[in-house]
Amino acid sequence: MRAKLPEVSALLDGELEPHELRPILDAVIREEGLRDAWGSYVLIGDQLRREPLATADLTANVMAKIREEPVVLAPRNLQMTRHNHPLLALAASIAGVAVVGWLALAGNPGPMPMENKLSAVSPAPTFARATEVQPVAEVASPAQNDMSEYLLAHHTQASTFRLGDNTQGIRTVSMTHRATRP
């Protein structure tokens, strides 16, 4: 399920190619976890834009309507361009939630190559959006990042009982910073 989260994110971003729509739509319909993710992403997007909150069970509403509208999944519609994304339009209209922002994004030019890489790990489209950072490489600075790589991995993965998750974050950023100093 987790492997498909980036595609759900890309779906909301309107970044999928027409031929990529069918598999992920099928997966969203089939897997409850993906449906929850869909609802969460929409809700968070709304909140970050300070738009009216959707009803509590957004996912259920959206998915129920999608099921009632099989035409959305018809091949003819899937051939539409990203500028007129059928599922996003449907979701916006039937759920009554502010997916307008996503529709606007769907009209944007295609993503840069690196954006694809970033969106592949970004389940939160509006949270530090991939399009907002323009990286050039994933290459680490060899010597400096030696221990920082390990520290970050350790702090992020190791669950410990300390100030909730905050401790991990602050230890991560503090120690990683020191470890990467020249």
Binding site: I44, L118, V121, S122, P123, A124, F127, A128, V133, P135, S141, Q144, L152, A153, T156, Q157, D165, G169, I170, T172, V173, T176, H177, T180
Partner: peptide, 21 residues
């Protein structure tokens, strides 16, 4: 550091580095 559920992003501007975990 920003976190959305299980995705953690660490911004180190001095090193011009963003780490996604």
């Amino acid at each position: 550091v920003t976190r959305y559920n299980d995705e953690v992003k660490c911004y180190l501007p001095e090193s011009r580095l963003m780490i996604v975990e």
